[in-house]
Amino acid sequence: MLSQESLQQIDREVAKYPPEQKQSAVMAALRIAQVEKGWLANETIEFVANYLGMPPIAAYEVASFYNMYDLQPVGRHKITVCTNLPCALSGGVHAAEYLKEKLGIDFNETTPDGLFTLKEGECMGACGDAPVLLHNNHRMCSWMTKERIDQLLAELGGK
């Protein structure tokens, strides 16, 4: 179900917690699984739950509670733009509008070629760098002027 490499990473996470608290590693395990699979299908969540010896619904609670897990397939590149007030004051909303226009999609939509998904994000703790966006959850891009958005999309294989 998951690659050997992912399982090793999960084991490393499990080792951070007391032996009888394997469940503590569920957030990390779901993250690692999502990186490998692109999103969290029910089977993936169930696999992770069984791997950690916890009820599947408890893992599902976690997967559905935290924003950054994707319970539906997303494009190869998920772009999450912060539009919260501090960012909005420095162009966060405008950056999002620009992305929508360029990609031709709205929030929570994926481009027909399956390349991009656009999401609206909440505060990323980087308001001083506004506009900010996250690429595939793990890479933060700051000061996203139109030019830099164009650059990013080009780098990621878009127009």
């Binding site: 469940q23 503590s24 779901l30 609670e61 976690v62 509670f65 924003n67 909440e122 505060c123």
Partner: peptide, 19 residues
């Protein structure tokens, strides 16, 4: 992994517990 409420200290503990 994306939940403002985990800044609240007891939510944070629950989250470390894998909940």
């Amino acid at each position: 992994y994306g939940a403002y409420i985990c800044g609240e200290e007891t939510a944070l503990l629950e989250s470390i517990e894998g909940k």
